[in-house]
Amino acid sequence: MSEPTDTAPVTGTARVKRGMAEMVKGGVIMDVVTPDQAKIAEDAGAVAVMALERVPADIRAEGGVSRMSDPDMIDGIIAAVSIPVMAKARIGHFVEAQVLQAIGVDYIDESEVLTPADEAHHIDKWAFTVPFVCGATNLGEALRRIAEGAAMIRSKGEAGTGNVVEATRHMRQIRGGIRRLSTLDETELYAAAKELRAPYELVQEVARAGKLPVVLFTAGGVATPADAAMMMQLGAEGVFVGSGIFKSGDPAKRAAAIVQATTFHDDPDVIAKVSRGLGAAMVGINIATLPETERLANRGW
């Protein structure tokens, strides 16, 4: 221990980083692009907001290089709400992450939704005081991100499509992978670590605990209360909603409905009640028609 005195407070520990994610469990984190949207999200009961310049649906539509948001824009959102504010950095762009930490965001999403800045390396997240959430399509990817210091994992469902099929696949793969690990003996775990391309100690920890050592959320394509509830029933501990709220007909009402459906994910009567009269959902994209090069989940390794 290197504390100057034994009563001195210590910041940036793995426990406070992972603990922050524990506190948003059972909640909904909403993408917002303006302070007004952030207020609507907070009014609706969001546990946090993700500040970004364009929601994934617009990033898809407009193309070009997508980067960290303007610090002024993030400041505006921090000033508008009292709930935690998250923001996105490009995969591997450790300076964007340094800037976001300096601004005072509460969590950084090293996100495939932005254009990757490094083709081989993710950010060394242990080097930061601010915690990171990272996307994963399967258990090996989740464990590699945790090994790099991610304090929270989310599925990498195809953002900006309003289609949950990919998030479903990722949730099933991550949860199924964990269940499989817990059936293996100590010797078999070495081979499993090799197959997963993840550190043996982490594989062993997951096999013993039957869960990831960090909180697992879902993200990508959630557009309805039923989508959110399905992800929770598949084992997500909370929900990120991107374009699904502010690309719909009545964002305030839909946001509140998704919050309730997340808490009462195992109660079809509540989900039915909150699903009424929400107006139009976002139109969405059939992922089978998306060319490989436009699939964001393929970014990161």
Partner: peptide
């Protein structure tokens, strides 16, 4: 007072 000790970067452990 909510969030009195600050934002997440100020979160801490202490006896």
């Amino acid at each position: 007072r909510r969030n009195a000790f600050g934002r997440q970067v100020d979160s801490f452990e202490a006896p």
